[in-house]
Structure formats: C-alpha cells, structure tokens
Design a protein around this nucleic acid. Structure first.
Lengths: 178, 178
DNA sequence: GAAAATATGTCAATATAGCTGACATAAACT
DNA sequence: AGTTTATGTCAGCTATATTGACATATTTTC
C-alpha cells in the first residue's frame, strides 16, 4: 500500500513566495496533531483496561528505559511537579510495576527500577507504538527513518537536544548490555 | 547551526537484525514525545496569559482553518464529547473569538466562524508553531519538508488519512481565496 | 559538630479537560 | 404526526496537572 503524497509543496510554483511571506506551515502543524493523536491512542487502550492513564505510561516508559534513574531526573524529563508524579508513581509501585532502591552512594536517593512485570508492560506498549512506526516506515523509502529522526530532533528546543540524544544513546547502551 | 545526526541507524551494521527482531524503535518513540512537547509549548505560553488552554487552541485552530464548519464536524475531528466541547466553545464565543451563524440550508446547524479577533489569535499561535517548524527545516536539506509530511501522514490511521488530507487541502483552498 | 542544602515524600486546595448519563429544543425528514 | 438529527445543557465523576506548606533523612559546607 502506497500513500499518495499530501500536496507536493516542494513542486508548488509559489512555494518560495509562501516561504518569504512566512505563511503558516499548516500541513506540518495539522499532520503533527493527527499523527501524535494516533500514536498515543494505541497504548491508551491497553492502559485504560489496567486503570492507568498516559501519565503512568510516561513514568513507566522512562524508568524502564533508564534503570536506576533518580526521582529528580524523572521530574525534569517529564517536566511536572513531584506532587503530580507522586500519585502516579505510588500506584505503579503499589501494583508492582516499579520498585525503589536506596542509592548506594547517596542514601537519600530512591533509584527507580521497572520490575519484570513493569518491563513486560513497558515493552508491550512500546511494541504497539513500534508496530505503527514500522508500518509507516515500510510504506516509505529506506532513508525515511533517518529523515524522521532528523526532523523530529530539529523540532526539539535546541538547548534540550543534547540531553535527549544522551538519554536515547545511554538507554540504548544499557539495554544492549543485557 | 548544524545538528549532528542522532545515531545513524541506517549505517548500523546490525540494523537488519534489529528490524528482524522487531526491537522497539526507541529513537522515534522518544523523539516524537519530546518534539510534540516542545511543539505545543509555544502556544501554551500565550494561551495561559489569556486564561485559555490547549483545548481552546484546538477549537480555535480548526474553526479558523475551516470557516463555517458544523459543530458535529468539530466533534469528530477533535474526538471529544459535545459536553467537553461545550464549555470551551462557550468561552471562546463569550469572549468574542468565535461566532455561530445559523445554517442557510439547515437551520438546526450552528456554523462556526472565527471573528477577526479569533483569527488574529489563531494566526499568532500558528505563527509560533511555524517559526519552530521553519527553524527546523532550515537546518535540514531541501526535501525535509516533503519527507516530514510523508512520515507524519503514514503515522496516521490509514482510515483517517483521506479525511485529514481533504481537511488540509480544503482549508488551504478556502484560505487562498481571500 | 552545627548549619545549610539536597532528595524525597506528603497534605490540602485548586484548575483544566476530559468523561457518562439524562434531558431539552428546534428543525428536518418520512 | 412521528421520528430522526443537530445542538445545547445540567449534574456529577475522573485524571492529570498546579501551588503552597511542611516533614524527614541525608549529605555537604563552614
């Protein structure tokens, strides 16, 4: 199944004029809205059956991806208050998806780890999202994956890109050591 | 300013093996999370000063883009209940950002239009998002815009793509008639 | 060793944005 | 005349976030 291109703006004769005027880039704005909407809908269905929401997904995702991360790190990544995190994290801990361990160097820290049960759920949810992404990339040419990464990276606040890239690289590394 | 590529998975020697195993595509999953987060943060700042939230933005955006749309259409696009829409829409109408006009053919319909004030706000918000997108595309090669559109379109539920594409095309057309 | 800073947790009150269910009104369709 | 459709509204509920205040244990600093 091939998808017909949306409207090939690159071939539009007045593309340069539009860019000069700084016209809104409606296509990206709206596609991003709908793509993200569908992207999060797959996990949402599974989560709601467990009595969880998107907030639980985000917490479990990052803990699973970064075993032993500090609560403070999680707060910075999610950009929420500790009170907001508290409720969600408590539920995940109480139901056995996440455990906390005292830091070896700094005993004030409560380092976060996904349990096998937590990891199973995290991987299930990531699997659903990966299915969608893989399906999308399969419809496109081979360079589409790299191109998507470049575009999405460039959309992130410049000051945060380094952090995000380290996050992805470090998590990939810790996973592959298994 | 050039951005170093995240991790060139296309050049990775075990990329094929990873794809065969169906490993999660962590890079896209996390980049999409952070990119969308920053993408909506620009408008959020402006909106919060007006006492509005993201919900108001979405309503105003689609009404501005599709002048004369029915309430029912808006409900389908946003995928929320009329009760949820009601509160937000009422505030936008009361404060003069949106007006309702009786349908010419079907007088039950309340067709939605952005007022000049509403259009100004919608365009301001779209402008902020466009700045970010344009900044991103400027860092990338010329085909990046089209590539991003293809990727994002492919990420949308197949059954919804047609609707979204029509939405974008129709709105573009109605705008350019001005 | 006392004081200050840090990491985390918790209580209380509030706001936003969504939901379900029930019901109301007006206009159009059959 | 009766049914369906488009819209609106009341009431109550849930999830996710907020701010502000305060508590506890631990580490760091002077």
């Amino acid at each position: 199944m091939t998808i017909s291109p949306l409207r090939d703006r690159t071939a539009s004769k007045d593309q340069a004029a539009s860019r000069d005027r700084g016209d809104p880039l409606w296509d990206i704005i709206e596609l991003l809205f709908f793509a993200y909407r569908d992207f999060v809908s797959d996990p949402d269905d599974v989560l709601s059956k467990l009595g969880f929401g998107r907030a639980h997904h985000r917490v479990l995702h990052f803990v699973n991806r970064n075993p032993g991360m500090k609560v403070a790190d999680l707060l910075h990544i999610l950009n929420i208050t500790k009170q907001s995190l508290g409720r969600v994290l408590k539920q995940l801990i109480d139901q056995g998806y996440i455990v906390q361990k005292e830091g070896a160097n700094d005993r004030r820290q409560r380092l976060l780890y996904a349990t096998p049960k937590g990891e199973a759920l995290a991987m299930k949810l990531a699997g659903l999202q990966t299915e969608r992404i893989a399906r999308a990339l399969n419809e496109l040419d081979p360079g589409a994956h790299a191109a998507a990464c470049r575009f999405l990276t460039a959309m992130i606040d410049a000051e945060d890109r380094g952090i995000v890239q380290k996050l992805i690289a470090r998590a990939d590394q810790s996973r592959s050591q298994k």
